[in-house]
Design a binder for these strands. Structure first.
Lengths: 346, 346
DNA sequence: CTGAAAGCGCTAACAC
DNA sequence: GTGTTAGCGCTTTCAG
C-alpha cells in the first residue's frame, strides 16, 4: 500500500527542512518563531496525509516513550484486573500509553520484566512489588525514574505509594466480629509473606484480639497456583480448631477457597462459623449467605496512582515534590455471614 | 551509574568492528565464517558486561519487535483476563513479548489501538474483534501481518481464528433443559449484537426450541457498562414473561446480572425458574444452588491461539499454510440450577 | 573472514 | 525564521 511517509518526506514535499517540520510538530513553533504561514501549511499537510510520527525512532532519540509500565501480581486476579483496567483508561486519558504484565509475585520474573520495560524506555513504573525486589527498585529511582508502588510498599525504599489502611481494616473487621457478632474464637487465615499489606492485616487482627484478651488462631499458607494446596491447609486448620466460631480471610483468593472448604465440611455460615474476607467482589455479594467483606476503593486507588504518576511525568524536574504516600480507608460491608441469627427467645 | 554500553563500545573494547559483533550476536557467526576465537571472545565479553542490545534501535532498523499484540474486549472480564494471562505466559515461553489492551468492543477504540500497535511495530495481532473493524483487519492482513481472531470471527475476512462451537453449546444446553429438566417455557437473554458468537448462541437456542415445537422467548439487551442498565431489562423481561420456567443467559456477565435479578424478584432456582449460563466461573460453581454452565476450554483456546501465532511468526514465509480455523467444543456442567427437584409422590 | 558505511525516522544544538 | 548536521543503537550490503 501507500508507503508510510516520514518527516523527511513531508519536508521535501513542502520544500522546507525537516527541522522546521519537527519543531512545528512538537509545538515549538512559537518558541522557534516559525512563521504562521509555514506552520499552517505543515499542519494542514500532515492532517491531509495522516502522517504519524514513528514513535520507535522518537523513543530511540529521546529516550522517552510516553508509556507507563504497570506490573501487577496476576492480571487474572479480580483486584488487579480491575485496577489495571482503570489505570489503562486513565493513562490514555492523560495521553500516556500503558503496558502491563504479571509478576506472579516472583522476584526473578519481576526483575526480568523491569529489564524489559527499561529496554522499551518506559517512562515510569507502577508496581505491586514482590519481596526481595528492593535493590532493583532503588536502582530505578536513583536513575530518576518515577516509581509508584501500590497494594504494598517496601519499608526501606523512599518513593510514592498508594495502599489501603490494612491494619485498621482487619482490626475493625475483627472488632466487628467480636462486638456485633459476639464471636470469641476467631481464626485468621493469611498467606505466608513478609509483604507489608499481609503483615499489617495480621497485626490488625492480633491487636483487636489482644484488646479483648482473646486467643489468636493464625494459619499462614504458602501461596501456590494450585487451588488444592490452598484448600487443603485451610481444611486442616478448620478441622483442627473445630471450636472456631468465626474466621477472617486475608485476601479474596483465600476467602473464595475458604468458602469452598466450609461448604465441603458441611458447615453453615454464620451459625457454625462466621466469615469475613478481605476484598469485596461479586462472589461475596452474591454468595448465600452474602459474605461480609473489606472493600478496597479500587477506583480511587487507581485514580490516585495514575495522578501521582502523571504529575511526576509532567512536572518540572526542578520542583521535586516530596514523595507522596497515600493510605486509603477501606470499607467494611457487613452482610449476613458475620451476624449471628437472632435466636428465638432468650 | 555505569552507562549502558552499545554494540560499538564492545566492538571498540575488543578491537573489532561492530559488524562482526552484530553477526555473532545474531547467530550469523557460522554463516559469515567468523573465527571461533573471535566468537568466543565476544560472547565472553558480552556476558561479562551483561550487554543487552537496545531493542528499540533493533526494531527501528528491522521493523520487527518480537512482540505480539493482544486486544481483548475488557481485561477486567473473567474470561478475557484468564485468556490474556495464559497467552502472556505462553508468549514469553516462546520468546515473544506480549502487549495488550482493552477495546471495550468499540470499533473506534480498536482502530486506534491497532494504529498504536502498528506504530510499535508489533509483529502479530491476536484480536477479539468488535463489529465494523473488518476493513482495518483486512488491511493488516494484506500487509502480511499474522492476525489470529478469537472468541468470534469476521465472516468476510479470511484469516486464522479460534472459537468455540457456540451453536452446539446453546443447542445442547437448551436440549438439556428440555429433556433432562423437563422445562418447556425457556427464555434466552443475550446482548444485542451481530457478532458471530452471540448470533450462533442464539441460533442454537432457537434450533433446539424449534425441534421441540416450543415457542422462543428472546430478550436482547444493549450492552452498557452500567450494571443497572442490564439488570433492569432482565427484570422487565422476567416479569413480563412470568410463566417462564427456565432461562438461558448468553454470556457470563448476563448470567451474573440475571442471578441478581432472580434474587431480587425472590424467585427460587430451579423451582421457580431454572438457570443455565454461558461461561463457567467461580460464581456459578459456588452459587446456591450451583449454576449449570457452558464452560469454554480457556486453557486450550489460549494454547491454540498462541501456537498458531508462533507458527506464523516463525515459519518460512514461503510455506504459507492455509489459514487455520479452529472450533473447539464446550462442556456443559450440569448443576442443580437446571434440574427440577424430585417432587414427593406423583 | 572482517570492516566501512549507509540508513531506519527522529530530535536538537548550532549555524546562517 | 529556517536549514545543516550529528547522532540515538542497530542491521546489512558491499568491499576487501
Amino acid at each position: 500500500m501507500k508507503k508510510k511517509l516520514s518527516i523527511v518526506d513531508i519536508a521535501n514535499q513542502l520544500n522546507i527542512s525537516k527541522t522546521t517540520v519537527s519543531f512545528i510538530l512538537n509545538g515549538l513553533a512559537k518558541e522557534k518563531r516559525i512563521s504562521d504561514e509555514v506552520v499552517e501549511r505543515v499542519l494542514k499537510f500532515v492532517k491531509e496525509v495522516e502522517y504519524k510520527p514513528n514513535s520507535l525512532a522518537k523513543s530511540l532519540r529521546t529516550g522517552k516513550s510516553n508509556t507507563i509500565g504497570l506490573m501487577v501480581e496476576d492480571i487474572s486476579n479480580h483486584f488487579f484486573a480491575n485496577i489495571a483496567r482503570l489505570i489503562e483508561d486513565k493513562a490514555y486519558e492523560n495521553g500516556f500509553k500503558l503496558t502491563y504484565c504479571s509478576t506472579d509475585n516472583k522476584t526473578d520474573k519481576t526483575r526480568e520484566m523491569i529489564a524489559m520495560f527499561r529496554d522499551r524506555r518506559v517512562d515510569g513504573y507502577i508496581i505491586a512489588p514482590p519481596e526481595g525486589i528492593e535493590e532493583d527498585i532503588a536502582q530505578l529511582i536513583s536513575e530518576g525514574f518515577p516509581v509508584v508502588l501500590f497494594d504494598r510498599y517496601l519499608t526501606n525504599i523512599t518513593t510514592d505509594y498508594v495502599v489501603v489502611d490494612n491494619f485498621f481494616a482487619t482490626y475493625n473487621a475483627t472488632k466487628h466480629l467480636i462486638n456485633q457478632g459476639g464471636f470469641r474464637n476467631i481464626g485468621f487465615v493469611n498467606f505466608t509473606s513478609n509483604q507489608t499489606q499481609l503483615q499489617q492485616r495480621m497485626q490488625g487482627y492480633k491487636m483487636a484480639m489482644n484488646e479483648h484478651n482473646l486467643k489468636t488462631y493464625i494459619k499462614e499458607i504458602v501461596y501456590h497456583p494450585d487451588q488444592e494446596l490452598i484448600t487443603k491447609p485451610i481444611n486442616a486448620f478448620l478441622k483442627k480448631h473445630d471450636f472456631l466460631d468465626a474466621v477472617l480471610f486475608g485476601t479474596n483468593h483465600l476467602g473464595a477457597c475458604g468458602l469452598r472448604v466450609i461448604k465441603e465440611l458441611g458447615l453453615t455460615i454464620p451459625d457454625d462459623i462466621a466469615v469475613v474476607s478481605f476484598d469485596d467482589y461479586e462472589l461475596f455479594q452474591m454468595y448465600n449467605p452474602p459474605i461480609t467483606a473489606i472493600a478496597q476503593p479500587i477506583d480511587k486507588i487507581a485514580d490516585k496512582i495514575i495522578s501521582i504518576m502523571v504529575q511526576r511525568l509532567t512536572q518540572n524536574s526542578s520542583d521535586k515534590a516530596e514523595t507522596e504516600t497515600v493510605m486509603m480507608p477501606t470499607e467494611l460491608f457487613v452482610r449476613e455471614s458475620s451476624i449471628k441469627k437472632l435466636t428465638m427467645a432468650g
